[in-house]
């Protein structure tokens, strides 16, 4: 029997500061064979163990390419994340996964793709964005819209520049509150929609961010005419075991950790849960 609760040991291979409170960690499996087995798709997540502190779920924030590492992006908000921030390259952690369902990919080929990310909601989209761009010819128009509270909250600044530089992607970024050096858009991410060239019937949208941002963005997209089944998002719930056993992430009869975390808006609407 495979032990679904037994982590694999990984090592921190690289640490990159994203913002004042957010870091990206590159992680490498200690056992190469386990890395071989670690085949994942964008939208899936891992449970990361800091032994002695606990476990917390993080989305896989990098596409699986030629490298022997994968990335997670971590904002310090709790006991595990704070402890992670204090670690250095070489430290060993535990990882269980990949967990969850992941985003659809083959199913949305030939469609226009709209990515909408808010704040720390960009990490789950990032590997999918790269996967789409790496198969650019198989998709229609690709749009990436990204919003954050302030310029200092923007993550993946390298990626942002590379997307901005490409002429086969429409890329826009906005902040709620600018500063003296900010010359780009100001306003919530929804204010970018009129500026983007979106053809509702042709478009599949992937929306990730804080719950309130998702609520408003979905409302806007629906009023623009996107179909409910063409809007995908990831749900945030308190995922603990990650394998549909501990029940913490249940919404109605759906385990966010196992049946999700990616759901279409149509699915979400039928999920019965208070709150």
């Amino acid at each position: 029997m495979e032990n679904a609760y037994l982590p694999d040991v990984v090592e921190i291979a690289a640490i990159r500061d994203e913002t004042y409170d957010t870091k990206t960690f590159g992680l490498r499996f200690v056992e190469p064979a386990r890395w071989e087995a670690f085949q994942y798709r964008p939208g899936q997540f891992v449970e990361v163990s800091l032994f002695g502190v606990g476990e917390a779920p993080f989305c896989l924030a990098s596409a699986r390419d030629g490298a022997d590492t994968f990335e997670i992006t971590v904002r310090g908000t709790g006991s595990v994340t704070d402890a992670l921030h204090n670690l250095e390259v070489g430290a060993q952690l535990g990882v269980r996964g990949p967990l969850g369902n992941g985003f659809p990919f083959d199913e949305v080929k030939r469609r226009d793709i709209l990515f909408v990310g808010g704040g720390i909601g960009l990490p789950p989209l990032r590997p999918l964005i790269w996967q789409v761009l790496n198969s650019r010819g198989e998709f229609g128009k690709v749009t990436v819209l990204y919003g954050a509270r302030a310029p200092a909250d923007l993550v993946y600044k390298d990626d942002l520049e590379r997307w901005r530089a490409r002429d086969d992607v429409e890329f826009m970024v906005t902040v709620d509150v600018g500063d003296e050096s900010w010359t780009d858009n100001v306003g919530v991410v929804g204010t970018l929609f009129p500026k983007a060239d979106i053809e509702p019937q042709a478009t599949v949208a992937f929306v990730c961010g804080p719950p309130i941002m998702i609520r408003f963005v979905v409302r806007d997209l629906l009023s623009m005419g996107l179909a409910e089944e063409d809007i995908y998002t990831t749900l945030e719930r308190h995922m603990r075991c990650g394998v549909g056993k501990c029940n913490h992430c249940l919404i109605g009869d759906k385990y966010v950790c196992k049946d999700g975390p990616v759901f279409s808006y149509r699915q979400m609407k039928t999920m019965m849960d208070p709150g």
Partner: peptide, 10 residues
Amino acid sequence: CTCFLTADWQ
């Protein structure tokens, strides 16, 4: 009933 959580000691 089967709800559970985990806790680490070190």
